[in-house]
């Protein structure tokens, strides 16, 4: 099976996150406010080099930039 999302460089994980996000946004006001908190990710990371902490980066942003870079290469 050829999936359109795969051809554009997205991972299955990212695909699932998008489908889940759009489902949450389609909810009625009450359940939506409860559910949308689940979609937030605050993970940050930093690379350590020579005993020095590098720049503090947001994991979600770096991931999506990385996927955009690899888009259409498969």
């Amino acid at each position: 099976m050829a999936f359109a999302w795969k051809a554009s460089g997205l991972t299955y994980n990212r695909y699932l996150a998008i489908t889940a996000r759009v489902v949450r946004r389609s909810l009625k006001e009450q359940p939506r406010l409860q559910a949308e908190r689940r979609g937030e990710m605050e993970l940050r990371f930093a690379k350590w080099e020579k005993s020095k902490q590098g720049e503090n980066k947001n994991l979600a942003e770096v991931n999506s930039a990385d996927m955009a870079e690899h888009a259409g290469k498969e």
Binding site: A4, V22, R25, S26, A68
Partner: peptide, 28 residues
């Protein structure tokens, strides 16, 4: 909410955004 998101996603999918934005809009 579904209807308003469809018009929005259609705009992005048919627009001139990055390949990734278009792919995400198509999934949506």
């Amino acid at each position: 909410a579904v209807r308003s998101q469809i018009t929005e996603a259609q705009k992005i999918a048919g627009g001139s955004g990055s390949e990734q934005d278009i792919a995400e809009a198509k999934i949506e």
